[in-house]
């Protein structure tokens, strides 16, 4: 059994009277691929932001590879080798594809190695033909792919992806799935996702969030056929 790389104990996040995330205990092992699903407002994104350091939880602790990271800033989390992709495309629009990826690579390598790593990723993600173009001019799918490149170039051991398939064409999603699988060879991955079809194609273990809590955690097939989960998604009370 592989070591645990991410663990949360009693993670709670309150916004005023609203409990967005309630007492979440979560464990992730090395090189595991985990999908977080749940209806809107279920607390998946809040959980994601707490882990990424974008929000500080009200209560509870987060441990990464045995180190407590609860109050870390995003740049500290990222610098420790965690690749993060937020829900909305977050890229440097007026810079070229190469420059975008180079900046990500430069954080972990000296300039020469960063050049090499960047070329490497550009080839792997088939971005060669647009490497010199400004990111702002590219199509949504291409931008998403570049952002995945930014994440991959740092050789992360943990990757957090918030809705990577949102708004992408079937072809783009397929390509994205291949990239994710490749990253998964060396990194544990958490994917927050709405798109059920995408989840079916990629997930093994799924954690279902509902009203800030973990509703169930099981293999994707069992989760999909579970009547409670279906009710939650259709908005019925059980």
């Amino acid at each position: 059994m592989a070591e645990t790389v991410l663990e949360t104990h009693g993670l709670t996040m309150r916004f005023g009277g609203v409990v967005a995330s309630n007492n979440v205990d979560f464990k992730l092992r090395a090189r595991e691929l985990r999908c977080l699903i749940g209806p809107n407002g279920a607390g998946k994104s809040t959980f994601f932001k707490c882990v990424a350091g974008l929000q500080t939880p009200t209560e509870g602790e987060i441990y990464m590879r045995g180190v407590e990271t609860t109050r870390w800033m995003p740049h500290q989390v990222a610098a420790s080798g965690v690749g993060i992709k937020t829900q909305t495309p977050n890229v440097m629009d007026s810079l070229s594809v190469f420059e975008n990826i180079w900046l990500a690579a430069r954080r972990f390598h000296d300039p020469k190695d960063a050049n090499r790593k960047t070329q490497d990723i550009i080839e792997r993600l088939a971005l060669g033909s647009i490497a010199k173009d400004d990111l702002g001019r590219l199509a949504h799918g291409e931008r998403q792919r570049v952002e995945l490149g930014l994440v991959a170039v740092g050789d992360p051991w943990l990757v957090l992806l918030d809705e990577p398939a949102a708004g992408m064409s079937a072809e783009d999603v397929e390509r994205m799935t291949r990239i994710i699988h490749e990253m998964n060879k060396t990194a544990a991955i958490i994917i927050v996702e709405h798109d059920m079809q995408f989840i079916r194609s990629i997930a093994k273990m799924v954690t279902v969030f509902h009203q800030g809590e973990v509703l169930m955690e099981d293999h994707v097939d069992r989760v999909m056929s579970d009547p409670t989960v279906r009710n939650v998604y259709l908005g019925k009370k059980n």
Binding site: A52, H75, N90
Partner: peptide
């Protein structure tokens, strides 16, 4: 260009 992205890259 993008502060959030740069901090998410570890800067």
């Amino acid at each position: 260009e993008n502060e959030t992205r740069m901090s998410l890259m570890g800067y």
